[in-house]
Design a protein around this nucleic acid. Structure first.
Length: 1135
RNA sequence: AGUCCCAUAGCUCAGUUGGUUAGAGCGCUACACUGAUAAUGUAGAGGUCCCCAGUUCAACUCUGGGUGGGACUACCA
């Protein structure tokens, strides 16, 4: 027995999923796809490492479906696409997870639990959900090499990171500096922005606020402020919610474009007349009516005019040195609150620090007795006690009589356990002091939003902390330049979010004070005068040896480390994590001990370094690195823009002066169906596992990639997945089933010699033309990393053209009879369409397409490859694309639909044949096209003949439509009138117009000539006929039902009824039958006249008439024809 | 606060370089068709193309300003 195309009882995508997965496993399909064909070489892809300490979510399916689709497509194009999986294993979320599961806090590290145990727990915990991730990866069909992933905690990975850091260090790009960071004095640690964004951290608190008055120094720069005033001096108003920062003030910032006013008023506390400067806009707020303050405006000035004005120090505790106490400008200044003038304390605000640096304003620093400089507030949150200050510094820079009473005070009472809310705060005392000195304008309690430490619940300070930085700013121009060569999808993320980010780049703060992460490989002497940056284990081994010689270490943990042996065993001799790495003490050039900087590095450096570290470069893969760098393609969520996308780019530019990726898709978020972010808390998160179990990952992937452009946020609605299944997969399945059913009946195998395309019928050539157009379109879209329109085009082709037109119109060609060329054409055409669609859709929906492909191939044996993912992506044949043919068929489709609409209008069912349609055909080209598709239309709408009418018949009512695109530029302002005039043309004028090819139009006494090329002339109506219009198409239907037609209609009714009975009785498609119909007056003529027709359609050997009494038994049925009951007998004939 | 994305039918989305009647699918209503049948067709209802202003003969489309939703970054007197 010959092979048969597999037939199925129903569409079960989850089952297909599992069966195809098993096939891939059995055949090792993924591994076999990893090769380069036709000398295409490598297509480099980088996998962004997910953190395996959390469960994967539905959004992971999104970005991974994109990555998988592109990689599969490139594979099918002939490239070798290696895909190394990776795991991001360091970082705060891991630490928090461990602390939660162990029930400890950071303070317990080193006491309740050793750093050693803590890190061991992190190492275990981070791979907690690896199984779930691997399971999802497998079931969603994401092909990636999970057997050899890169793991960021691996010593070899860390070694590459150290090498990179040393490269940066040697280039002078790695430096130590300080920056203003959120700092918790109570916990004694800096906080990450992540920690600050934890729920409940920002809280409304009531604080003392103060508008301070800064006295302007009268000199050349400021004298314009003093002209015409009658007060002692001029004061600049600045508002603060943290009066304790006022002693550290070294500048005032104004907005360059903001308008400021000089206002005469009185000091409410001293009643002294004063002249003050503030933003003009804020006068009504500061001098609100309820304050009962009188004031007059002297004049206004732009912020830029005030720039450079000097003022006297507000609180003379410490002298900050040259350059302080100036008015500077800053873009960050607003007039939403305060006075429009910002008090700048560079030691306690990030903006302040930056503004200070830009304008050369010094921060207010004090010299401590230990020789280090620091801000006026110490790390415990106190004004630096006198005893901690350097004695010489006190003598030269500190006003002991004014500072003395305040030294040692906590800036927030919360930091001192012996103080309560009832005690006076430093803020209040400073405010009162200013008030008494006439330097305060207003003091009041205000509620504002302020961050708190999530561990201690106490307020955070913005505080200068030492950190290690990468000088990314030094490479800014190069970063921007190279970014412009990257193909971003969507473009706006590259130029916009990412581009702007690069323009406003600040140095990369690398330091993190944590335990579980990549240690900074820098060792320093205690006085910080000597340092060493280690770039490899080999180097470390040598340095340790030197240290042992110097007596600082007793044993070399790398004693047995073999340089050049890259095995895991060799690299497991020493754990490079804390605390082990901290036990290593190195020796400086001058023979002094050096200890490691305790900082870890930002985990983003880990992931951004993966192009190098996944290859353990340069310790391995040095020769072939060019084959793996840079990436041709990466894809992740848009939330990675300033994360992974940036760190990849930054490191590649700094190390290799190259982009890290050439093409990138950044996809949007997956929201719930109401547009809300998915979260466990709202329990609106969609579980990818159960979704795939229920619907199959093909349906899920198809929905996610075709419903919306991937970079738009996706409102995930499961009913969309179901719709995709019904609409696209259902139709494709049906089309295949239809093919398989008849191909098996006819013994078609697909391996028959091809009927030459030019010998196939018009409709076959049409669908082949469309198919080739589709190949072109899909290839271009995929090539452009634009998956969505590619998928939509495939879907349109399958549902609209292939199934709903081609198969529907051709069904009869597959039924009955032997195998002639026409039938063979039909099978071969449908086979080609199914196979090509399967191949083209394979990158997006890898399972179902592989099933279709292998099912087709199992009989035809056309391909040697056992999987759709191993075959070449099709290329289109220009010769097979026939635009004129596609156009003709469009006419047929539209015409048919119009005629069916007319039938519906007068309630004449399609089974009732009608005599003729009438089509206006003044255009010869149109007539020719119509003639070619005439048989299709007539068959589809069940009409016998076409009659063409031309305008000379006088039957047609014509209409002229102006072509605005052509006429618009010609008429300009008069277009409206011209359009109206054209629409108002009479039938005679139109006829004249058409005859002459041009027309003179009279507008405002001016004559304008228009030609027929500039308008569209359509036949709108045929009086007395039933007419339909759509665009340029017009058709009229003759709805007279003659006796002959009625008989034929009745015959067709019988065919339909008999077919239904056949089906109901469960006959095989090939069974022969005998039919007896009740001899009623209104059917007898119809049946006897068309008995042959009825017989041929229903595979009846005999159709006869008989009285009702003769039609009895189990084979007898009663059916409804033309609203009358008729008895019919249908029985199987053996033979 | 800054930067970016999004806003078109009840829902999900198309809509070319501006061109005058803004489309599809789903859903709803009615009808039809049927050897693909858990499929299909036709028709109907359903629109302030988020709002305002501008440019233009002409704006869903371009410009500016808002509003709403979302993301990232930053966090401020």
């Amino acid at each position: 027995m010959s092979k048969r195309f597999p037939e199925y009882k129903g569409l079960d995508l989850p089952k297909v999923n599992n069966e195809v997965l098993k096939m891939w496993d059995d055949d090792d399909t993924f591994r076999r796809s990893l090769r380069s064909r036709d000398g295409k070489g490598e297509f480099v892809f980088y996998e962004g490492p997910p953190s395996a300490n959390g469960m994967p979510g539905i959004h992971h399916v999104m970005s991974r479906a994109i990555k998988d689709a592109i990689c599969r497509f490139k594979t099918m194009q002939g490239y070798e696409v290696k895909r190394k999986a990776g795991w991001d294993t360091h970082g705060l979320p891991v630490e928090l997870g461990v602390e939660k599961s162990l029930g400890i806090t950071k303070e317990d590290i080193g006491t309740k639990i050793s750093v050693d145990e803590y890190n061991a727990a992190c190492r275990r915990d981070v791979m907690k959900y690896t199984d779930a991730w691997e399971d999802l990866t497998r079931h969603m069909g994401y092909w990636i090499d999970m057997d050899n992933p890169y793991v960021t905690y691996d010593n070899r990975y860390i070694e590459t990171l150290w090498w990179l850091l040393k490269e940066l260090y040697n280039k002078g790009l790695l430096y130590e500096g300080y920056t203003i960071q959120p700092y918790s004095p109570a916990a004694g640690t800096g906080l990450s922005s992540h920690e600050l964004n934890m729920p409940g951290c920002y809280r409304d608190v009531k604080d003392t606020t103060c508008i301070a008055l800064f006295s302007v120094k009268k000199n050349d720069k400021s004298k314009f402020l003093f002209s015409g005033i009658d007060t002692q001096g001029v004061k600049i108003m600045a508002w603060t919610t943290t009066p304790w920062t006022l002693p550290s003030n070294t500048a005032l910032a104004v907005g360059p474009e903001i308008k400021y006013a000089s206002v005469r008023t009185t000091n409410p506390y001293t009643s002294e007349p004063i002249t003050v400067i503030l933003a003009e806009e804020l006068i009504p707020v500061i001098f609100a009516p309820d304050k009962k303050l009188e004031y007059t405006v002297n004049g206004t000035y732009k912020g830029s005019e005030l720039k450079g004005i000097d003022y006297e120090q507000l609180i003379d505790w410490v002298n900050p040195g040259e350059g302080a106490f100036r008015v500077i400008t800053g873009d960050f200044v607003t007039t939403v609150d305060g006075t429009g003038i910002v008090h700048i304390a560079p030691t306690f605000g990030a903006d302040d620090y930056r503004a200070g640096r830009e304008h050369g304003v010094p921060p207010l620093l004090v010299l401590m007795s230990d020789g280090f400089e620091g801000p006026l507030v110490d790390r415990r949150g106190r004004m630096v006690p006198m005893g901690d200050l350097d004695q010489a510094f006190i003598a030269t820079h500190v006003n002991t009589s004014t500072y003395g009473p305040f030294a040692g005070r906590y800036v927030k009472n919360e930091y001192n356990d012996s103080l309560t809310e009832a005690d006076a705060t430093l803020d209040v005392d400073i405010a009162v002091m200013l008030k008494q000195a006439g330097k305060a304008f207003r003091i009041e309690k205000q509620i504002h939003n302020y961050p708190h430490c999530w561990r201690t619940d106490k307020p955070v300070l913005y505080y200068p902390l030492d950190s290690w930085f990468i000088r990314t700013t030094a490479l800014r121009d190069r970063l921007i330049e190279l970014n412009n060569t990257i193909n971003w999808k969507p473009e706006s993320t590259g130029t916009g979010r990412f581009g702007k980010w690069l323009e406003n780049l600040v140095d990369w703060n690398l330091s993190r004070s944590r335990y579980w992460g990549t240690p900074l490989p820098i060792w320093m002497t205690e006085d910080r005068q000597e340092e060493i940056c280690i770039g490899s284990l080999a180097e470390l081994k040598i340095e340790i040896t030197r240290s042992i010689d110097a007596g600082y270490m007793t044993r070399n943990p790398l004693e047995n480390f073999v340089v050049g042996d890259n095995s895991l065993e060799n690299y497991s001799l020493l754990d490079l994590h804390r605390p082990y790495v901290d036990e290593i003490v190195l020796v400086s050039r001058t023979g002094r001990p050096m200890r490691r900087e305790t900082d870890l590095i930002d985990v983003w450096f880990d992931s951004g370094a993966m192009p190098y570290a996944q290859a353990h470069y340069p310790f391995e893969n040095k020769e072939n690195f060019a084959e793996m760098f840079p990436a041709d393609f990466i894809a992740e969520g848009v939330d990675q823009t300033r994360g992974w996308f940036f760190t990849l780019h930054a490191i590649a530019v700094m190390i290799s002066d190259s982009v890290s990726y050439k093409n990138i898709i950044s996809n949007g978020l997956v929201l719930d169906k109401n547009g809300n972010k998915m979260s466990k808390r709202l329990s609106n998160a969609v579980d990818p596992f159960s979704t795939i179990d229920q619907h199959g990952s093909d349906a899920l992937r198809w929905y996610m990639l075709t419903n919306a452009q991937p970079w738009d946020n996706l409102r995930f609605d499961i009913s969309g997945v179901e719709e995709a299944k019904r609409k696209f997969f259902g139709t494709l399945y049906n089309t295949y089933s239809f093919f398989a059913l008849y191909a098996n009946v006819d013994g078609f195998t697909g391996s028959e010699p091809q009927v030459p395309v030019e010998r196939r019928p018009e409709i076959d050539r049409w669908i082949i033309s469309l198919l080739n157009t589709l190949i072109k379109e899909v290839t271009e879209r995929y090539d452009d990393y634009d998956i969505t329109p590619a998928g939509r085009a495939i879907s349109d082709f399958v549902t609209e053209n292939l199934s709903n037109w081609y198969v529907r119109l051709n069904r009869k060609r597959y039924w009955g009879g032997g195998m002639d060329d026409d039938k063979l054409s039909a099978y071969q055409t449908l086979y080609t369409c199914l196979e090509t669609v399967a191949i083209m859709a394979a990158p997006v929906i890898p399972f179902f397409t592989d099933r279709i492909f292998t099912d087709l191939n199992s009989v035809s044996g056309k391909h040697n490859e056992g999987s759709v993912h191993l075959v070449a992506f099709p290329s289109y044949d220009k010769k097979l694309i026939d635009k004129a043919l596609e156009e003709r068929m469009e006419i047929a489709q539209k015409m048919s639909s119009m005629i069916l609409a007319l039938r519906r209008h007068v309630n004449i069912r399609v089974r009732q044949p009608l005599a003729r349609i009438m089509v206006p055909a003044s255009d010869r080209h149109f007539r020719k096209s119509f003639e070619a598709v005439k048989p299709l239309i007539l068959a589809e709408v069940n009409v016998k003949e076409v009659e063409y009418v031309d305008d000379t018949s006088g039957l047609l009512i014509r209409k002229v439509k102006p072509n605005f695109k052509l006429l618009g530029p010609k008429f300009g302002k008069k277009m409206k009138e011209a359009g109206a005039a054209i629409l108002a043309l009479t039938q005679n004028e139109i006829a004249e117009f058409e005859k002459n090819g041009s027309l003179n139009l009279l507008l405002d006494g001016e004559t304008h000539t228009i030609t027929t090329a500039e308008v569209e002339i359509i036949s709108e109506d045929i009086p007395g006929w039933l007419v339909a219009n759509e665009g340029r198409l017009t058709v009229a239907l003759d709805i007279t039902v003659t006796e002959d037609l009625l008989h034929e209609g009745i015959a067709r009714e019988f065919v339909n009824r008999i077919q239904n009975i056949r089906k109901e009785r469960g006959f095989e498609v090939t069974d022969k039958i005998r039919v007896v119909i009740e001899d009623l007056p209104f059917v007898s003529a119809a049946v006897s006249k068309h008995s042959d027709y009825i017989a041929s359609q229903t595979l009846a050997l005999d159709v006869s008439l008989a009285p009702a009494s003769a039609i009895t038994g189990p084979a007898a049925r009663e059916t409804d024809i033309e609203e009358q009951m008729v008895r019919v007998l249908v029985e199987k004939v053996k033979g």
